[in-house]
Design a protein around this nucleic acid. Structure first.
Lengths: 334, 334
DNA sequence: TTGTAAGCGTTATCAC
DNA sequence: GTGATAACGCTTACAA
């Protein structure tokens, strides 16, 4: 388990350590024969540079710290995948910690990351207090995904939840719907902006908004439908808080004898992989999650390279994915 | 961005660097007043130890390298989550790289990880050649998840795909089914053992097996049903290669006018989050994915601590999750 | 072009 | 208990 060092390579190649260092960074100012000798010696010994030692000596880092609440959440997993791809392109490695959406655990995770003196840190939807974020930002560049801030030394990458909900409402209105109800996402981080977008869009079209409180699960979607069924008159369309909620709602509506989309159109949010299943085929709102990860990494790299000082405020546009759960309203109201 | 060092803390507390080091490791052989002085100085300066320097000087590492093909795959995301939890419990951090299931990329990812001189490495379902794995194992402890090996210096954590399929067949047989068809997973890494388990279980029960070639997607499931419908006589039950395939099959069968499970019982594999949706409510086979991650981390930690030299060969038992897509066969055959 | 030597921020081994 | 001092594996002026 004891690996060869630069010293070993130097000795074997009959040169100095500094020369080996130059070769490893393929510096142009090394003569061909020496370079070959070094490369051969390294090859024979199975030498590979020691990143930590390199980092320490050069006072630079090729590590990007990432704090994510939970990788099982497909949203974060995709953002991390985007981060990873962009980081690799720029020669960085990811060191990942989970925070479980609990401030205390996030605090610890952040401290661990900082101990590696990373070149930059990406915080995905953190619940950390602003002062912790500010403190981190004074140690290295920081980018926030799915969270806003006024800190000018911190970049942010967000998806435009208001625009997404507006897209959903606009789509339904263009199909002829006027009675459109929103199932909201309760305490989830993104539900406020989604609700706000729904309300604004309804008002814009001169329609009366109605919000039923729900959560981001299929059980909650079914429960919200139960509540809805108490009404004298049913809406012709539903804008749900996310795909799971939509699936639960559809299932409950079908159980109650309604046809989707014949009787009621339903639209989800997130375009999770299940929305694409032919069994589900859910019309929904897509956010460019991988893209968000890429942009986060790029924002960090720019700051690391000192190419930018002003904060970046990315607000990504969601798009509508039309599938089989939305159509024109039935004529039953006449 | 220039952070205080141990030297700074020592100076401010009026002690030597060595003493600060002792305090940071809360060594018992430091007098209370000195310890307090050091702690206060550290606090005031916002000092935090430099992991890389510590690693270098102590010739130890608190880093676990992880290579995963794709975090968007829920299976791997959950395994990583388990790794992360167990690593944190033992004081390790994860540094993650993706390999995209391409040997060349995996090779590069592995090299990157090794450059950090990690304490151990976890390879999730790698397609790397054995010799690369062996080479890595000569640098540090290595654990393989979802891949077997004869290398005795490498541990493996696998789920028992044969047992899982047998569980599915046994369940159906106990309900009274005899005409049970398998949709296999094609070129996927796990499909061979699942198919083998199906075949063995059918033989065990004295039943005639029938395999229809398919893939791990819902579209493939639907396609396999189309093929099935050419038959004169339909089976009463389906053992599919995974949950997506099952959903696609169910959807296609319903479109063709069959009731699930009234006419045909269907069983999935993986217990993905979508199987639990009430709209789907799929009977399926569950593998303890988080647990696999935990065990992988523990295997590494044991080797790192020198507590074990013999290889670990974990074969985890899957379990049957009974939901709404399986029931007794209809009597139509009489 | 190549070598020398002084760090980088720690830990570890000694003396005291 | 506490403090020098020599590593750890590498980079980087600066000399040669």
């Amino acid at each position: 388990m004891v690996r060869p060092t630069m010293e070993d390579v130097a000795r074997r190649a009959g040169v100095s350590r500094a020369l080996v260092s130059l070769v490893m960074h393929d510096s142009p100012k090394v003569s061909a024969p020496r370079r070959d000798a070094v490369l051969r010696a390294a090859e024979e010994l199975g030498y590979s540079p020691h990143m930590m030692a390199r980092s320490l000596a050069s006072r630079t880092s090729t590590v990007l710290g990432v704090m994510v609440s939970d990788l099982r959440n497909a949203f974060f997993a995709e953002v991390v995948e985007g981060l990873d791809a962009a980081a690799r392109d720029s020669g960085f490695e990811l060191i990942i910690n989970t925070g479980g959406r609990r401030a205390s655990r996030e605090q610890r995770a952040l401290r661990s990351l900082l101990a590696f003196r990373p070149a930059g840190i990406a915080l995905l939807s953190p619940v950390l207090p602003v002062k912790s974020i500010d403190a981190a930002a004074s140690a290295c560049p920081v980018v926030l995904v799915s969270r806003s801030t006024r800190l000018t030394n911190v970049d942010t990458i967000n998806d435009d939840g208001e625009a997404g909900s507006a897209l959903a409402v606009d789509h339904l209105v263009s199909l002829g719907h006027t009675a459109i109800v929103h199932f909201d996402g309760g305490s989830a981080a993104n539900s406020t902006s989604r609700r706000r977008g729904y309300l604004a869009a309804m008002r814009k079209h001169g329609l009366r908004p109605e919000v039923i409180h729900s959560e981001h699960t299929d059980a909650a979607g079914a429960k919200a439908v139960a509540e809805l069924l108490q009404h004298d008159e049913l809406p012709t369309a539903l804008v749900t808080g996310n795909d799971f909620n939509a699936i639960g709602a559809i299932s409950a509506l079908e159980d109650a004898g309604y046809d989707i989309p014949g009787d009621i159109s339903v639209i989800g949010y997130d375009n999770t992989s299940l929305a694409a299943l032919r069994h589900v085929s859910l019309t929904t709102i897509d956010q460019p999650r991988m893209e968000m990860g890429r942009l986060a990494a790029e924002a960090l790299v720019q700051r690391i390279r000192g190419q930018r000082a002003e904060p970046v405020r990315q607000l990504l546009n969601p798009t509508l994915v039309t599938r089989a759960t939305t159509t024109e309203p039935a004529r039953r109201q006449r």
